[in-house]
Simulated scan of single mutants.
Amino acid sequence: MNDTDLKVAIPVLTIDGPSGSGKGTISRLVASRLGWHYLDSGALYRAVGVSAGWADIDLADPAALVRCAFDTEVGFRDDPGGELRVLINGLDATDELRTETAGAAASAIAAIPEVRSALKERQRVFRRAPGLVADGRDMGTVIFPDAPFKVFLTASAEERAERRYKQLSDKGVSVTLAGLLREILARDARDAQRAVAPLRPAEDAVRIDTTGLGIDAVVERVLARVTA
């Protein structure tokens, strides 16, 4: 099957948006409902950031980070409870990937063109039958610009901070709401202003503001785009 046949035969739904917009939760639920594969692109960047930390690589060293991107093995599996686990070089690093430190590292290295290029094809191989739901920040604009279904989720910075606060507090992580809000605003600025693949909706993406909406309501809105 050539590239053109692949694009026609295997549909992709891209779900992009800023941190805390709910795209990860929504994407996994939608993928489950559709019976499609799922790609958490952010986990790949976080994995490279964590792997770089393990190897004491300077996040300001593009060449070393590119080597790290190529050398880092990343795998996904569901645990018995249905939760997605992420393996880095064979080690379960799921909890470490969810830390704010990992998120900040991912945002920093995602601004490096050479790293983005190294990870681009690794993301595209996730396109497998019967379909793929891909969540991230440039899925609809860069990785799968030909995707027939595109959604851009957003929410107010305050609500996104509250969601993250609850998520981390439930896991016993000590954080402050004010601190999380500052981090989210700073990350939004970095993602929107980076020179390569800045965070923005694809021109043909449907925008959904999730502020004040429950998970089920958002899932149904997204599914409506695919099943209409």
Results as ranks from 00 to 15, higher is better:
118 A>P: 03
128 R>F: 02
64 A>I: 03
95 D>P: 00
8 V>T: 15
220 E>C: 03
151 V>H: 01
6 L>Y: 00
83 E>A: 13
45 Y>H: 08
107 S>N: 05
77 R>W: 14
104 A>T: 07
137 R>N: 12
193 Q>K: 11
36 W>A: 12
11 P>F: 05
104 A>Y: 06
226 V>M: 08
129 A>W: 07
85 R>T: 03
158 E>G: 13
66 V>M: 06
198 P>T: 08
21 S>Q: 02
46 R>E: 01
58 D>P: 01
129 A>G: 02
105 A>C: 05
130 P>L: 02
201 P>S: 12
3 D>M: 12
212 G>W: 07
197 A>G: 10
107 S>C: 07
88 I>H: 00
128 R>M: 11
152 F>V: 08
181 L>K: 14
210 T>P: 06
130 P>W: 10
169 S>N: 13
207 R>Q: 08
124 R>V: 02
223 L>A: 10
182 R>T: 14
16 D>I: 02
155 A>G: 09
114 E>G: 04
218 V>P: 01
188 D>K: 03
167 Q>R: 08
80 P>Q: 10
153 L>Q: 05
96 E>Q: 11
185 L>I: 15
166 K>S: 15
213 L>W: 01
99 T>R: 10
189 A>T: 15
181 L>N: 05
228 A>Y: 11
77 R>H: 10
49 G>T: 12
143 I>Q: 04
106 A>S: 13
145 P>E: 11
120 K>A: 15
45 Y>G: 02
228 A>R: 15
186 A>P: 00
9 A>M: 14
120 K>N: 14
13 L>Q: 06
215 I>M: 06
223 L>K: 13
195 A>T: 15
225 R>P: 01
46 R>F: 01
147 A>E: 09
8 V>Y: 00
160 R>W: 00
34 L>H: 04
99 T>L: 05
122 R>C: 10
99 T>E: 08
